[in-house]
Design a protein around this nucleic acid. Structure first.
Length: 258
DNA sequence: GACGATGTTGGCAC
DNA sequence: GGTGCCAACATCGT
């Protein structure tokens, strides 16, 4: 489910929680809890923000971090199901953590942990010069680099494929060899596809919804992701699917060059 | 029913 | 710091 645009959409749908107090936390599945959440009990939520794919609740003391993994959801006043693993009772309303595959994680931290501090820059905030320098500091396949959260924070499989297609860059292109004009094109494509996806409230591929249960619509604007065999929107060549570092990768063999 | 694929990260070996 | 491979888990399509 959740890459940068989806997590951003969830965070925006949680803004009403600002000022709420966490009165009680019921944990039904320990697997999704990274550490002891007791310190968050009784704390007031000062703000809800996104960093990469993490949702960060800044509390009046410490932080509550939520990573949605592949199928995690935060639902306001939603229905409790067999996949509801944590229940946050607030002074007004209830926040549920639901996650069928249980790849997501919740944790409390006094200080932001290294896994958040060591994330790469936000793709929508990084400057071109920073981006270009980081690109050339590595010698790896472009698709792998875009998925590396220490390079840029928040891009996942969908938006990596979509950005590379929009920039005309092959997923196996070597990052260190990407020319400045092509790097500029990729930088722009990443920002454009993420901004458009946020505007569409994310991609609902299987069951992604925001905290109010609303789906996104960007899946209708995907040009390559899960479009294997469909004609390329630019040249008509059937879209190909291959594996790059074990991730399904969709691209046009004619439009995307190494 | 079996099999393979699915948006995530993390740990291992090399 | 790279890559490849596997792991966690449930659901869905063939």
């Amino acid at each position: 489910m959740p890459e940068l645009p989806e997590v951003e959409t969830v965070v925006r749908s949680l803004q009403s929680l600002t000022g709420r107090r966490i009165q009680n936390i019921e944990i039904r599945q320990q697997r999704v809890i990274r550490n002891e959440l007791d310190p968050a009990r009784g704390r007031r939520i000062q703000s809800v923000k996104r960093r990469g794919k993490f949702i960060v609740f800044h509390l009046d003391k410490g932080h509550l971090l939520v990573h949605l993994g592949m199928t995690g959801k935060l639902l306001l006043d939603g229905e409790i199901t067999k996949h509801t693993h944590a229940i946050f009772a607030l002074d007004r309303g209830v926040l549920l953590y639901t996650d069928s595959r249980q790849f997501g994680r919740i944790e409390y931290a006094d200080q932001l942990p290294a896994r958040v501090e060591s994330l790469g820059p936000e793709p929508l905030l990084v400057t071109f010069d920073e981006f270009y320098e980081a690109l050339h500091a590595r010698k790896t396949q472009m698709k792998a680099l875009l998925l590396n959260q220490r390079f840029l924070a928040g891009i996942g499989n969908i938006y990596a494929d979509e950005a590379l297609f929009r920039a005309g860059i092959h997923p196996r292109a070597n990052s260190a060899l990407l020319s400045k004009p092509r790097s500029r094109k990729l930088y722009a494509a990443i920002q454009q596809v993420l901004a458009e996806a946020i505007a569409a409230k994310g991609s609902s591929i299987s069951d992604y919804v925001d905290s109010e249960g609303r789906k996104g619509s960007f899946q209708h604007q995907h040009l390559v992701y899960q479009r294997t065999g469909h004609p390329c929107s630019q040249c008509g060549t059937p879209i190909k699917r291959t594996l790059v570092t074990q991730r399904g990768t969709h691209y046009c063999s004619k439009c995307q060059k190494k």
